[in-house]
């Protein structure tokens, strides 16, 4: 058990006329090594929730436990928590600042108090994991393409070797290949380091392909917490929440309504192809 969120409520501006409840009695557990997709419409509370996971926001009520310890207990070292739980914000490339790529990635581990050598070793590993070639190491991060900058920024968090990696919409603005490359490298990082990944996304297609488990947020509460296939069975409810199902799942519903004997428990194109071939008698 790595993270336990227990009856967490968060209010912005509590006790003022501007008070608004962003999270309302949220409870869940994240196990080691899971790949979690966190979805919900804008304003549903996703970003507020992830900022509790590494102690940026403090619950109004309830608690967050990391490996069994209450992180908002007075004597818990939040700096240490942040070395275990790495948070990649939206548009992390806006936070690049060093004169070259390699220095930028070294900044995090150096800040943790590691030796220069250890920091450089980690930076090298992290840049390799996200697929940045040596040629780019000594270039200014500002001369890279959007997708490369994004990956350098993520490497900066990876170099701190967190046990939990939380990413808030990491693929926004990337081209389709850049998106696939980034998500594939997250899957590789998870497999090679055994870390837990929490992916906040607006793309139903992406979470369907990569997540082992999906949390769906609506109006500050978690409404579904299940395997992707099971979550996407709630077609109508998800639409009401401003979300939806992957495009291909929608197509399977339409085929079924038109009389084809296909399952609607399909969330990826590969599965859809197999399912349709079987239904057409070409198994």
């Amino acid at each position: 058990m790595s993270i336990l969120v227990n009856h967490l409520t968060y209010k912005y501006n509590p006790g003022t006329p501007m008070e608004s409840v962003a999270l309302n009695d949220v409870s869940f557990e994240i196990g080691d090594g899971e790949f979690i997709g966190l979805i919900g419409h804008t304003g549903s509370g996703k970003s507020t929730l992830v900022q509790h996971l590494n102690g940026i926001l403090k619950p109004t009520e309830g608690s967050v436990y990391y490996n069994g310890r209450d992180v908002f207990d007075g004597d818990y070292d939040l700096k240490e928590l942040r070395s275990h739980v790495g948070l990649v914000f939206q548009y992390p490339e806006h936070q690049l600042f060093e004169s070259d790529v390699f220095k930028d990635v070294c900044f995090g581990p150096l800040n943790l108090g590691l030796s220069k050598k250890e920091a450089e070793l980690r930076a090298y590993k992290a840049l390799k994991l996200v697929g940045i070639e040596d040629d780019f190491f000594y270039q200014s991060p500002f001369d890279l393409s959007g997708g490369q900058k994004r990956r350098v920024a993520i490497a900066g968090v990876l170099a701190m070797e967190p046990d939990v990696l939380v990413l808030d919409e990491p693929t926004a603005g990337l081209d389709p290949r850049g998106r696939d490359d980034l998500l594939d490298s997250l899957k590789t990082v998870q497999a090679e380091t055994g870390c837990t990944v929490v992916l906040v996304s607006h793309s139903m297609e992406d979470v369907a392909r990569y997540a082992d488990r999906i949390l769906v947020m609506n109006n500050g509460t978690i409404v579904y917490d299940d395997k992707p296939v099971s979550v996407f069975r709630h077609y109508d409810k998800l639409k009401e929440m401003g979300l939806g199902v992957p495009e291909i799942t929608g197509a399977m519903y339409r085929l079924r309504a038109a009389g084809f004997n296909v399952s609607t428990d399909v969330i990826t194109v590969d599965d859809a192809v197999n399912e349709i071939m079987a239904a057409m008698g070409h198994a």
Partner: peptide, 12 residues
């Protein structure tokens, strides 16, 4: 120029 990149499905 990419007006929907930051939006959720309904926003898009």
């Amino acid at each position: 120029d990419e007006p929907t990149a930051m939006l959720d499905p309904i926003g898009r």
